[in-house]
Design a protein around this nucleic acid. Sequence first.
DNA 1: AACCTGACTTCGG
DNA 2: TCCGAAGCCAGGT
Length: 103
Amino acid sequence: MASDFFERIYKIIQRIPKGKVATYGQIAALAGKPHAARAVGWALNNTPPQLDLPWQRVINASGRSSFDEETKRKLQQALLKKEGVKFDKSGKVDLERFQWNGK
DNA sequence: AACCTGACTTCGG
DNA sequence: TCCGAAGCCAGGT
């Protein structure tokens, strides 16, 4: 578990400012592995809750929540809305506007 | 080492 | 918009 890759991912996610979002692929790229989007998802799914990571700010390349269950999608959207991120009717985020620039 | 699964992404149809 | 297939990475249900 204690791989550098994970450490980098955690740090990167913690750098995402409130009111902004990032995609799995983007995080993977910042972590040094442009094609490890899936691994990022795996990492998040296995992240200890006590780390208090803003996981809600991580969404897929379509600007949507990747959860199957609607209850979880709603939760994620609710948390983001509270931070100022807006969703359209279909539950999509305007990435052009809310995606974190990486700085 | 091989095989499977997954909070992914991209391309076609 | 929706679905399937292929490519990619890490860990082991």
